[in-house]
């Protein structure tokens, strides 16, 4: 069976969500693999939410908000950017596949950019295949051995 990536998008209410809305009302065609979760601001997008999305079956994640200087709350996206810089590097240091997270700025006027971003991300994740690395981590070594013994 063909692999259909599950993409979760964490977006801010004021820019990217409106941008996605615009893509919709302009009838721009783009991949249907994305589930959008709307936040008040990128500053509110906690890194734990990303971890949980992966744990619960996401193959790829999009995080997106207002361009720098366009934040509805003035500086939420600046704070978010600092955190993303650190978080992304930390994940990479732990060997986590950071290519599965796409960070972007999409404004309310950029419906086309949004559609392109989703298409591009979906294609990239489709090529990478399902994200099993994180989910297959199992219970303690002792139990693993038991399971191995049983399945042999």
């Amino acid at each position: 069976m063909d692999f259909e990536p599950k993409i979760v998008a964490f977006v801010c209410n004021w820019c990217t969500y409106a941008g996605a809305d615009l893509a919709g009302t302009s009838r721009t065609k783009y991949a249907t693999n994305v589930s959008i979760i709307r936040f008040p601001c990128t500053g509110r997008i906690d890194f734990m939410l990303l971890m949980k999305a992966f744990e619960n079956g996401a193959d790829g994640i999009i995080v997106s908000g207002c361009h720098p200087n366009d934040c509805h709350y003035t500086s939420g996206n600046f704070h978010a950017r600092r955190r993303w810089i650190v978080f992304r590097s930390l994940l990479d240091f732990m060997g986590f596949d950071t290519d599965r997270i796409t960070f972007s700025w999409v404004s309310a006027a950029e419906g086309t950019k949004w559609a392109g971003l989703v298409d591009e991300t979906t294609e990239k994740i489709r090529e990478k295949g399902p994200f099993t690395e994180f989910k297959k981590l199992d219970y303690s070594i002792l139990e693993k051995i038991e399971n191995d013994v049983v399945t042999e």
Binding site: F47, L90, L91
Partner: peptide, 18 residues
Amino acid sequence: SETTGNLEWHTMRAMHLG
């Protein structure tokens, strides 16, 4: 205590100490 959750815990701890 299981690897996924442990990894999440250590990520969270590190991030909160960033």
